[in-house]
Amino acid sequence: MWADTLLILFISVCTALLGEGLTWLMVYRTEKYQKLKAEVERQSKRLEKRKEAHGDSLDKQHKKKIEREEEELKNNNRDLSLVKMKSMFAIGFAFTALLSMFNNIFDGRVVARLPFVPISWIQGLSHRNLSGDDYTECSFIFLYILCTMSIRQNIQKMLGFAPSRTASKQSGSIFGPPPQQFK
């Protein structure tokens, strides 16, 4: 079990590196992506500054300008997503195949022991294909997802491939609408 846990950690590091490497080959190094990324960052910063300066003003001209810039940013963000999408699909297929292979290898094996009993709607994932009622036993898929969650983003950040904060703030996040930040 201990060896399996370490092996899964190693697998998730390798797949994260492989994923970033492939994305770099297919997306990050292309001129189109770099141009669009720079454009989105520049526009996000400009929009942010404009919102700080004129966000509360009732001047119609300023409001129109902000709206126009927001529209431009939205379009560029959409183009950027489209550039990424093709390679994401290719990588997605490759990783689904890899995942099903690993799933078969670790099928029915307890790879780790959780220090807590997961809430009921997570148990389907954490106890997937495992026999018995001990819900502290962990399946491959749950540990792999957790490892990938923690490792992938850190690797992206270390390699400088993480999306810029300003651009993601302007387009909002799961925590709510874009806040008024960097005053």
């Binding site: 079990m1 790879v111 780790a112 022991r113 220090p115 962990c138 957790l146 969650m149 923690s150 983003q153």
Partner: peptide, 20 residues
């Protein structure tokens, strides 16, 4: 969230280790 995922990995490993 990344920190939380990292946090969950470690006790899992030590819990697995202790159980072993």
């Amino acid at each position: 969230m990344t920190s939380f995922a990292g946090f969950l990995d470690i006790p899992e490993m030590s819990s697995t280790h202790l159980s072993l």
